[in-house]
Structure formats: structure tokens, C-alpha cells
Design a protein around this nucleic acid. Structure first.
Length: 134
DNA sequence: GCCAACGTTGGC
DNA sequence: GCCAACGTTGGC
């Protein structure tokens, strides 16, 4: 089992819409590193959902329900999507501020590589953020 | 709305 | 293959 964090601007695709949709394909990734992370996702991997630009917090957990396939929104074969479904909303969203302030989370890519939109987390980091959110 | 960080593009 | 110019992301 691997753990991930994905970013979405609430204006483009908010957690609330995700809950309503029940599942979504994660499109729009146009960065090689993020794309490679999408390709590394396995079914049942768990994915934290982060609101960027507005909110600036991790709002819930999703799971991978379908592994990568060609991005249906483009003909360019190099881009892929995965299917995600919501698992659980956080009781209290975990803010970027909290993550920055937590010594266990000092190395997460969210902080170190702020522009990366799909990133891996260690099990420890994942569990720590879950603990902060519930 | 600004700007720093950083990925990509294109001329040489 | 280097590097300057440019575009995009995302925190503030």
C-alpha cells in the first residue's frame, strides 16, 4: 500500500464536489514528475486531498479505484489519469500551517516542492496527517 | 494582485 | 547541450 497527496484548487474541483460525484478521474496533470507519480499509484492506495490556493488544507482521504490510463481529455498519449473515490472527510481539515509546524512533516513535498501537484507520502507522514485531521 | 520557485522552450 | 526567456503554480 502506498500513500499520496494530490492538490486541487477548490475553484476547479473541490472536495465537496468530489463527495457529490462519488468518484472522479484525476485529470489535468501536465508535469512529468506528477505524471510518474500517477503511474505509480496502485488500486486501493490512499490519497490525501489538498485544497490549494484557497483553503490551504488537507480536507479528506480518497482511494485509488482504477489505475492509470490515457487522459481522456487529450489525444496526447503521454498524459494519464487515475480514478479516485472519496473515503472519508476530515473532522478538522489539516492546514498548511499545521503541516509546516509539525516536525514529523518537515520533509513532505508539499512544503519542499510547492508546485508539485501529485506527490508520494511515507506511511508515517500519511498517518500523522490523518491523526491531525480526526 | 504580486512575486518567488521552478519547469519548459527555443536560439545558439 | 547550455542558458536566457517565458509561462505556470501557489503561498502570501
Amino acid at each position: 500500500m502506498n500513500y499520496w497527496l494530490v492538490k486541487s484548487e477548490p475553484k476547479k474541483y473541490a472536495w465537496e464536489k468530489f463527495l457529490h460525484d462519488k468518484k472522479t478521474f484525476w485529470d489535468g496533470v501536465r508535469n512529468y514528475q506528477a505524471r510518474n507519480n500517477l503511474k505509480a499509484m496502485k488500486k486501493d492506495d490512499q490519497v490525501l486531498f489538498y485544497h490549494s490556493n484557497e483553503g490551504l488544507c488537507v480536507v479528506g482521504i480518497a482511494e485509488v479505484i482504477k489505475e492509470f490510463y490515457q487522459d481522456p481529455t487529450t489525444d496526447d498519449k503521454q498524459w494519464v489519469v487515475v480514478d479516485l473515490a472519496p473515503l472519508q472527510s476530515f473532522e478538522s481539515p489539516v492546514t498548511l500551517e499545521q503541516i509546516k509546524a509539525d516536525s514529523l512533516l518537515a520533509n513532505v513535498a508539499l512544503i519542499r516542492q510547492s508546485r508539485l501537484s501529485v506527490m508520494p507520502l511515507s506511511a508515517d507522514e500519511f498517518n500523522r496527517i490523518i491523526a491531525l485531521g480526526n
